[in-house]
């Protein structure tokens, strides 16, 4: 046997590589949802936006030959989904959760319907940067072949944190999210802020979809997401509405997702269903450990409520 196998070192490497490869959609969807929820609104429909974004990006990339046009198209489509959601939810007595679920179904259905002709053709993929050039090992080269969208996602994480903490835009968003009345008293139109925040959130989520169809796994089919959009929405609560927390939680999920295949590949073959459940078990443990019956979840925007 040639020395191409790296044995047990494959596990940490796979977790690192998986964290980078698998996390990007989680990063974008959870950052988008953070913006939306910080404005005091929940958009559960991001799973639909993610899948519709994946389809739009793939279709545009197939037709035009440019993956970046695909990403731009997905952003536009995602923003429109967010606008529809935001527009409907501005009316009194409209429940965001119900609209979110309706929009999720709408996004999935429309993506399946319009995406039919694009299952077979191959689209050009988004570029990646070979940060592993220094290593002679093909495994490390492959693991450190990092997609540009991941880097953009990482940069956006810190930019968003800065914007929320230090700028007027961030302050406006937080005021609207914490108290609708206070925002009105300050002369801010909460409806408009929430509409924009939901649209931006939708655009972010659609970019996550573009990553799925145009880079990893890099194909459009109807099962491409398998619930990642929903998980990412849950990650936002897990990350306490903090962008950096979202980024780390996404990395954790990506890495934990790579654990099951990696363990099987080194010969730990029993109980793989259990390893596949690892990310969810981990989430449960952290949620239970950090929650308390006596106080609300820390960091939760004041105007955010599940019942309206």
């Amino acid at each position: 046997m040639e020395s191409t196998a790296i044995g047990l070192w494959g596990i940490p490497l796979a977790i690192l590589a998986g964290a980078i490869r698998v996390s990007t959609p989680f990063i974008f969807v959870s950052l988008g949802e953070t913006i939306t929820e910080r404005s005091g609104r929940i958009n559960l429909g991001l799973e639909g936006t993610l899948v519709f974004g994946a389809m739009t990006a793939y279709a545009i990339a197939v037709v035009t030959g440019s993956p970046w046009l695909g990403v731009a198209g997905a952003m536009a489509a995602g923003a429109s989904f967010g606008l529809i959601h935001g527009f409907i939810c501005r009316w009194p007595k409209v429940n965001d959760i119900a609209i979110g679920i309706a929009m999720m179904q709408f996004g999935l259905g429309l993506a399946f319907f319009l995406g039919k002709p694009y299952i077979q053709p191959a689209a050009p993929h988004l570029p990646s940067i070979p940060f592993g050039f220094w290593s002679g090992l093909p495994q490390i080269q492959a693991a450190l072949d990092i997609n540009v969208l991941f880097l953009i996602g990482a940069a956006l994480t810190f930019a968003l944190r800065w914007v929320l903490a230090n700028t007027r835009i961030g302050l406006t968003l937080r005021v609207v999210g914490d108290s609708t009345d206070a925002a009105r008293a300050m002369g801010i139109d909460p409806h408009r802020v929430r509409l924009v925040a939901t649209a931006v959130g939708g655009a972010f989520a659609a970019v996550g979809g573009a990553y799925l169809s145009l880079y990893y796994p890099g194909a459009w089919n109807e099962g491409i997401s398998s619930g990642q959009g929903l998980m990412a929405v849950a990650l936002v609560i897990f990350a306490r509405w903090n962008p950096v927390g979202c980024f780390l939680a996404a990395l954790l999920f990506g890495g934990a997702g790579a654990l099951g295949p990696a363990l099987q590949s080194v010969g730990v073959t029993s109980g793989y269903y259990l390893f596949y459940a690892a990310p969810y078990a981990l989430t449960l443990v952290i949620m239970i450990a950090t929650s308390s019956p006596n106080r609300p979840v820390p960091g939760m925007p004041g105007a955010l409520s599940l019942t309206k």
Binding site: A142, Y216, N221, A258, P261, Q264, S265
Partner: peptide, 13 residues
């Protein structure tokens, strides 16, 4: 899809 891609990567690694 994602798990299948991860599995291929783990095998090749």
């Amino acid at each position: 899809a994602v798990k299948e891609a991860e599995a291929v990567n783990a095998l090749v690694d």
